[in-house]
Structures are given as C-alpha cells and as structure tokens.
C-alpha cells in the first residue's frame, strides 16, 4: 500500500462513513522525533505494522511492534511512541467511532451487521481488554487493503462492502484476543477477572455465551471448567454473586428493596424475593429487619 490519508473533514472519501474518522498509511523513512507523542485516544484506534520495527507505549505498557502485528486501544487509553518518537517503517491505521457499535440500541448511524447479542459480547471483551498488542495477525493486512481499494474505486455496493470489512476487522481482533487468553494455563486468574467484571455489572442479564467469550473460551468447555473449578454452573455462580451483593445491600438501611433487586440483576422484586427466600428462609424485607435491629 502506498502512503495516503483519508480524514472526515478533508476530502470526500469518507462521506458515506461518519463512523470512520480517519484512515491512513505512513511510510517513515527516518526516525522522527516528536512525530508520535503519547496521547489519550478519543476513539477506537487500530494500527497495523507493514514493515519496520516500532517501540511504543500501549496503555502504559511498552511493546515492540513488528511487521504483521496489530495494536488497538479503546477510547481513554494512551498510545504513542516511546519518547514520542516514530521509528523507521510503514504503519497503517484506522480510527473508528465504536460507540455506534457498542450502543447498538441507541444507534442512529447504524453501520455494523452484528446482532445485538454479538455486539454485547464484543463490547464485554473490549471492556476487559482495553488495549492490546496482537502479534502476527495476517488477516488485518488484507482487510486494510480491501477497505482502501473499495474507498478508492467506489464500485457498486462499496458502502456495504466497507462496512462488512469493518465488521470483519473487529471479529479478527476479538477472536485473536480471546485465543491469546484462552490457554488453560491460568484459569484461576481469568476466573477472578470474570468475577470482578460480573460484580461490577450485576444488573446486566449475563448469558453463559457472554461470560465464556469474555474469557476467550467456548461455551461447553467454559461451563465444564467453571464447574470443576468452583463447584457451580456459571449461572448458579452468578446467582450466588447476586444474592451475595443483595445481602450486603440489604444491610444498608437507606436503599430501597426494589432498587436492590434490579441493581443486582433480578428481573423484579418478586423474582428477587423468591430466590432470596428459597436460600435464606427470609424475604428480603424480613432479612433486613432482622439484621438492622440486633
């Protein structure tokens, strides 16, 4: 690929694609000081190294990026060359407004073909891995090339093709990410990460597929692994966490029982009450009364 730069407010290549904020390729023939200062990304940024060797800080971690490697950062994460330097080599990048993808429900400029549950799973995976260096990801090269060609030649149906290619790019990144973390070597660590993620968002109606994907495993092997590690099925473990959190919240007198039910992921206060009573013998209200006046 030759050097180029498409920008939203400069030229008309991206007119039909408000979600692509910038795309380009740069061939850097000599070391450039202060050409790539560390900045906080405001959008979803994907980089792909075509040749050369780059020494970068990716979300506070130093990484040596080699040809065929991809790097991405989510909005809010830092990226830049070490000491702001841009090393010799060729790098391609694309900046996307990924909020459209992740906030599927409210999305007006709908461009992605992901179903709602796929989009949610992808969102969780990116939330757990807010930035990553993914070594040797050949597919990205072809996708970049195809997007560029489509944008250049504007043949019939190019708008759909570009959006499909963007979906493909995201799938390739996510799959590599999950594979990279999927080795069974350190399941306890991954399980801890998962638990922390679940605890932070108990109100969400988690599915087993989502939980499995967020630690980079298939549903069947995930369920088996969780069962042998924790003694519970993934969904029972989740209910367990919900009741745990509800128990804690019920001991705070200023919270409303219905709010507690919804905050901890029960469909309704009725559902909460039934589940809670089955386990503890108390309805949530009785439990609260008992625990506040000892």
């Amino acid at each position: 690929m030759n050097q180029f730069l498409f920008k939203q407010d400069n030229g008309n290549e991206l007119m039909l694609f408000p979600h692509i904020l910038e795309m380009g390729v740069r061939k850097n023939l000599s070391v450039q000081l202060n050409a790539f200062p560390e900045i906080v990304a405001t959008r979803f940024c994907v980089y792909y190294v075509i040749d050369g060797k780059f020494d970068w800080q990716v979300a506070g971690r130093r990484s040596i990026i080699l040809p065929k490697d991809a790097v991405y950062v989510m909005p809010g994460e830092k990226i830049g060359g070490v000491n702001g330097t841009l090393d010799v080599g060729t790098v391609a990048w694309i900046h996307l407004d990924i909020d459209c993808l992740l906030d599927k429900g409210r999305n007006q400029g709908k461009w992605s073909g992901f179903s709602e549950s796929e989009a949610l799973t992808i969102e969780h995976i990116f939330r757990m891995h807010r930035a990553a260096h993914l070594p040797i990801l050949n597919e990205v090269s072809r996708i970049f090339q195809d997007i560029y060609t489509e944008l250049q030649q504007r043949e019939v149906g190019y708008a759909s093709m570009v959006n499909q290619l963007l979906d493909e790019l995201i799938i390739v990144l996510v799959r590599q990410l999950t594979r990279q973390s999927a080795s069974s070597r350190d399941f306890p660590k991954k399980f801890l990460q998962l638990e922390q993620m679940l605890r932070q968002n108990l109100a969400h109606q988690w599915t087993v597929e989502e939980m499995a994907a967020s630690v980079g495993m298939g549903t069947t092997s995930f369920t088996e692994r969780v069962r042998s590690y924790s003694g519970f099925s993934p969904l029972s473990y989740l209910i367990n966490l919900r009741v745990t959190e509800a128990t804690r919240l019920l001991k705070q007198p200023d919270l409303n029982v219905t709010d507690i039910a919804l905050d901890t992921g029960f469909y309704s206060s009725q559902h909460f009450s039934t589940t809670f009573k089955k386990l503890t013998g108390y309805t949530p209200r009785e439990f609260r009364k008992k625990n506040l006046y000892l």
């Binding site: 638990e195 924790s230 003694g231 367990n240 966490l241 009741v243 745990t244 128990t247 386990l279």
Partner: peptide
C-alpha cells in the same frame, strides 16, 4: 463444594467477602 474468591487489592493484601462465603 463451592469456591469463593480471594481478592488481592494490593501487594500483601489477601481478603475474602464474608457475604459470599456465607451465601456460598
């Protein structure tokens, strides 16, 4: 059996959630 989690919020720290232990 049912597992519960040990949290390490800082080096040298090792904590468990009493409600989780009880509910588990």
């Amino acid at each position: 059996r049912g597992a519960y989690t040990t949290f390490h919020p800082a080096a040298d720290y090792s904590e468990q959630d009493p409600e989780q232990i009880f509910i588990t």
